[in-house]
Amino acid sequence: MTRPPGVTPLLSLTVVLAAALTLTGCGGRATTHHKPGTTHQEATGSSGTLLPARDETGHRLRELPAADAPTVRAEARPDPEGGWNVHLAVERFRFTPESTGGAALPGRGHARLLVDGRETARMYGPWGYVPPGAHTLTVRLHADDHTVWAVSGSPVQTTVRLDGTPGTPATSPAPGASATPGAPATPATPGASVAPVPTSPPPADAGRTVTLTITGKTVEPPLSRIELKKGERLTLRVTADRADTVHVHGYDRELRLSPGTPATLTLLADRTGLFEVETHESGLVLTQLVVR
């Protein structure tokens, strides 16, 4: 199987191998040639605290600090053939249909729809449908292990009233109160749980909007700081002349830009500190957020 090579090639082979070994630095002890792969950094984060409380469908609540907890807003649009098309806007949350049944990891899971108080469907993405005849819709965020994400003992959820008026259905966080469609609603109180806590601020508190324009390597307005109070909401509206990604450090939020089209990103300044907002491709610092 191995060829007995002649003497001459072997000489050159040995010489050359020695050179190659030196060059490639693999003459030392046997070790893996796997170049530094990805980090194998083990996760240490917590997945919240499991509370003894359950929601009305019997699922335990999983408590997170407000700053880490996901939020959800729902908007219901009447469908021309009846019923409602529901759109969810979530923050710090992604839909993870593949890992349902696994352990709870922060910021992941699915949504459940409760129509007139009865669970009717799950959502594994931002769009869903509610058939006609429904009056109120509650959207609640669950973790992969089916526990309910909660803040201060209340589920992270939103309620929308579906009153059948096409175009302007009123929404309500709970019977009695009302809000405009698409606007964030305050959560309903689950079962015999504690006082409601807003998972999203009311519409009046939409916060301020900062508009930025990127042309080549210039940013308009020029680099400055945006001062924010903790808990304040900020909307960045960015227009660029090329495709890029805006990254808000610290909050680790990203916004994709396509040339000429304004893109917006809203974030809740729930963490104090100095955070840079920059573009990935062009490497520009757009602004700095100072949250106190």
Partner: peptide
């Protein structure tokens, strides 16, 4: 052999 050695390394 140089080339092969480098390649393989």
């Amino acid at each position: 052999v140089v080339l092969a050695a480098l390649a393989a390394a």
